[in-house]
Design a protein around this nucleic acid. Sequence first.
DNA 1: GGAAGGAGCAGACGCC
DNA 2: GGCGTCTGCTCCTTCC
Lengths: 95, 95, 95, 95
Amino acid sequence: MNGPGHNSVSVEELLQLIERWEHLNIEKRDIADCQKEVMAEAKGRGYDTKVIRKLIAERKRDAGDMAEEEAVLELYREAIRMQTGPRNQPTNGDT
Amino acid sequence: MNGPGHNSVSVEELLQLIERWEHLNIEKRDIADCQKEVMAEAKGRGYDTKVIRKLIAERKRDAGDMAEEEAVLELYREAIRMQTGPRNQPTNGDT
Amino acid sequence: MNGPGHNSVSVEELLQLIERWEHLNIEKRDIADCQKEVMAEAKGRGYDTKVIRKLIAERKRDAGDMAEEEAVLELYREAIRMQTGPRNQPTNGDT
Amino acid sequence: MNGPGHNSVSVEELLQLIERWEHLNIEKRDIADCQKEVMAEAKGRGYDTKVIRKLIAERKRDAGDMAEEEAVLELYREAIRMQTGPRNQPTNGDT
DNA sequence: GGAAGGAGCAGACGCC
DNA sequence: GGCGTCTGCTCCTTCC
């Protein structure tokens, strides 16, 4: 009842999408395993993994804060532009 | 002041471990982005991503269940053997 | 200095919330202890607690699967309706 | 082939044990729901639940630390006794 | 030491 | 397009 080009194609492409997603997930798992290995190595060398995780979290926050600071600065710049721009580009007299 | 055997070495290797971990994390993020792209493509082709996620979860469960079922069956067999085996095996004389 | 309306009120209600939560947690611990007792009793009567845990897990899965299956079926039905309904219902002229 | 008092009894008591355990589990779930309500109420009153969780974790740690401190103190006392006791109870001259 | 359960967190979806 | 909510995942702790 269904000729070619009907939803059998959809099923095929749906499966391909799903399998692509699943394959990517496998890669993620592999990388996570590598991370566990790194932690294991750290522990093997006598480091406290809990402390290391704290350090990583801190670094992450620091990186994030830098970005956030930038965003805030940009926000302020924009706010300033909205005040100075519309009003007159004002005190600048060298036009 | 920083000859061999100082703790600057420890700091260095600690940093290397952390950076290796962070780099792996970046790779994970990239792959996660790819997954988002896949989902976006699916959505673009008219699929319901919620359903797709359900399907993926189902497939995952199915895969897991196969292995688990075997384990459970083995466990039960063992449990039954522990009950029937010792009790009936040797002293059973009504053959 | 600490009349009504100060933030000491907030501290008080915050503490109450926290303590309510903690008290509930204690109750949970108590119940968990009861569960341990049940298991200990089972073991004392000669049952294999490992098998019992598997049985419980199975019963849990069975119960969960019933509900979930319904949800998934409903989801799929809805997805199918979204595909077949709009596409074929009105403008379909090739009959 | 099995008269009364055989393993049909075991099945019954096994089921009772399992159901007792499951009932306790339900109670735990209920309490967990109450905890969620507490958190929801806290959020409704404008508190940051994340901070609250941190506070609870701290209090937990503090409580644990008190006990741990006691344990450490006891350990030290024991160590001191092992040093002073065997050697001579000696230099104590007020006998 | 290994597994099961719970807690915490990040990502994804829906609303505004 | 950003925010709030919510589910799912991972990690950690506890128990066996």
